[in-house]
Each structure stands twice: as structure tokens, then as C-alpha cells.
């Protein structure tokens, strides 16, 4: 995991994501999910490319069931973008880097 990527959990979700002032990406993942592992380097790259503009976080759904349940997540990887406490984008499954970049740019 890249330096800029922050691991969050059910108890820190409010402070780290909903109360954040910048745009936040949450990568919902689990250790048993192959595609989640496969997109991890791409998420790291995104974190570097948008440094200072985007906060990149990861939430392990195995250890933190409440947050995924609140957002109706039933598939991983799921990437969500939050702005001003609101969910503004949901991307389910293995996404192309270009598509994720576009979604971020649309919400910056």
C-alpha cells in the first residue's frame, strides 16, 4: 500500500471520509478477493497522481461490516467517491484506470 493511502475502519469512517474537506476515494476490499488485490497497485498510482487533491482510503469489509452494509455494498472491489459527506460516485468491479481518473476529475 502506498504511503498516501490510508486504511480506515467503521469507527473512523465519519471523520476520515464524511467530514473530510477534500474529495475522498474509498476502496472497499477484502483479503480473499483476487480482483481487489489486482487493482491495488492502480489505486496506489491514483493516490500519487492526485496527491493534494484527492484523499485515498481503503476499507477492509471483512473487519468492518457496518460501513459496507450502510452503503448497500454486495460486491467488491467497490470504489466510492465522497464529497462533502455525500457519496457522488460508485464503481463496482475491476475498473479501467482511465475510467476511474475520469470519475475523479468529474468531481474535483
Amino acid at each position: 500500500m502506498a504511503e498516501g493511502v490510508k486504511e480506515i475502519n467503521d469507527s473512523t469512517f465519519d471523520d476520515e471520509v464524511l467530514k473530510a474537506t477534500e474529495l475522498v476515494l474509498v476502496d472497499f476490499w477484502a483479503p480473499w478477493c483476487g480482483p481487489c488485490k489486482a487493482i491495488a497497485p492502480m489505486v496506489d498510482e491514483i493516490s500519487k497522481a492526485f496527491e493534494g487533491q484527492l484523499k485515498v482510503t481503503k476499507c477492509n469489509v471483512d473487519d468492518n461490516p457496518a460501513t459496507p452494509s450502510n452503503y448497500g455494498i454486495r460486491a467488491i472491489p467497490t470504489l466510492m467517491l465522497f464529497k462533502g459527506g455525500e457519496k457522488v460516485e460508485t464503481i463496482v468491479g475491476m475498473v479501467e484506470k482511465s475510467k476511474l481518473e475520469q470519475a475523479i476529475k468529474n468531481n474535483l
Binding site: A30, W32, C33, G34, P35, C36, D62, G72, I73, R74, A75, I76, P77, T78, T90, V92, G93
Partner: peptide, 16 residues
């Protein structure tokens, strides 16, 4: 319902 119950990846989603 893609990603909200419809899936093609059991290893990703079965634990839900």
C-alpha cells in the same frame, strides 16, 4: 442490480 446482488465473481462476493 449489477453490484447489488448480480455478480459474476463468487470469490469477490460470496462472503456477502
Amino acid at each position: 442490480f449489477w453490484g447489488q446482488g448480480v455478480s459474476t465473481c463468487a470469490t469477490c462476493d460470496a462472503p456477502f
